[in-house]
Nucleic acid binder design. Structure first.
Length: 235
DNA sequence: AAAGCAATCAACCGCATGATA
DNA sequence: CTATCATGCGGTTGATTGCTT
């Protein structure tokens, strides 16, 4: 039986514990091994959109909104490409923000422009001089990602020390002491960011013997940390 | 206080694409 | 070449929350 609907803290615990330890070597099989009554798709979405350590929560900044608008003008509904240029933001989050805020704001702005008769079109950053340096789509892409539009996964920090500049605003994984947090090693070591995503065959999935263990039960510290720190931030 | 409505956002669904047998 | 499977993407839905009356 496959569960649907909102994820519970317990389910989140299981998913985080599993992906942290073993990576996402196969989303379809993952829920079975992780002890989750969810489909693989649901697990993947939950991880990518909410549980990944580098997911940035909270309000969009003016600069982020400007980037979204500019890129959407050029690219249309290619949310994954737009997301790739906003580190820490997911396509789902950007899509939602677009439909609930930016689209309406643009319509409103266009209407007011049409009414004022000046023909001067103001974008959302007209009150922010700092943003007027290079507001072309090319400029935004160049500034955020280099000359080429990057792959969606490029927003995931590489192993080259990007944890020095965390993109997470609400959940700071740096606050946890490594010695006391065995599971968090995986978040912070050099392999974590590449393991789940590299499909070159180098990643060895857990075997049946090890995965039969209910791994989430072993990690009481992690569970407690998660309950207190992480879950509360998401509510 | 409660009912109605609108806004928000987490999650699901269907389709497309790429890999592999 | 074709079938099958896994994954990714974008559109849409529905539950929850907040606001108004």
């Amino acid at each position: 039986m496959v569960r649907k609907g909102t994820w519970t803290p317990e389910e989140d615990n299981k998913l985080i514990a599993y992906v942290t330890r073993y990576g996402s070597w196969n989303w379809r099989q993952l829920p079975k091994f992780a002890g989750l009554e969810r489909c693989g798709k649901s697990c993947r979405l939950r991880w990518l959109n909410y549980l990944r350590p580098d997911v940035k929560r909270g309000n969009f900044t003016q600069q982020e909104e400007d980037t979204i608008i500019k890129l959407h003008q050029k690219l249309g509904n290619r949310w994954i490409v737009i997301a790739a240029n906003l580190p820490g933001r997911t396509d789902n989050e950007i899509k939602n923000h677009w439909h609930t805020n930016l689209k309406k704001r643009l319509i409103k702005n266009n209407n007011s422009d049409a009414n004022d008769g000046t023909g001067n079109s103001k974008d959302t950053n007209s009150d922010n001089p700092a943003m007027e340096q290079d507001n072309t789509v090319e400029g935004v892409l160049e500034k955020n990602s280099g000359p080429n539009i990057t792959s969606p996964l490029s927003s995931i920090p590489s192993s080259s020390g990007t944890m020095d500049t965390p993109t997470t605003t609400e959940i700071s994984y740096e606050n946890y002491v490594l010695d006391e947090l065995p599971l968090m090693d995986a978040f912070l070591n050099d392999n974590f960011w590449t393991e789940p995503y590299i499909m070159d065959g180098s990643y060895v999935p857990p075997n049946e013997e090890t995965t039969l263990l209910p791994i989430w039960c072993e990690d009481e510290y992690f569970s407690a940390m998660y309950d207190e720190q992480l879950w509360s931030h998401q509510q």
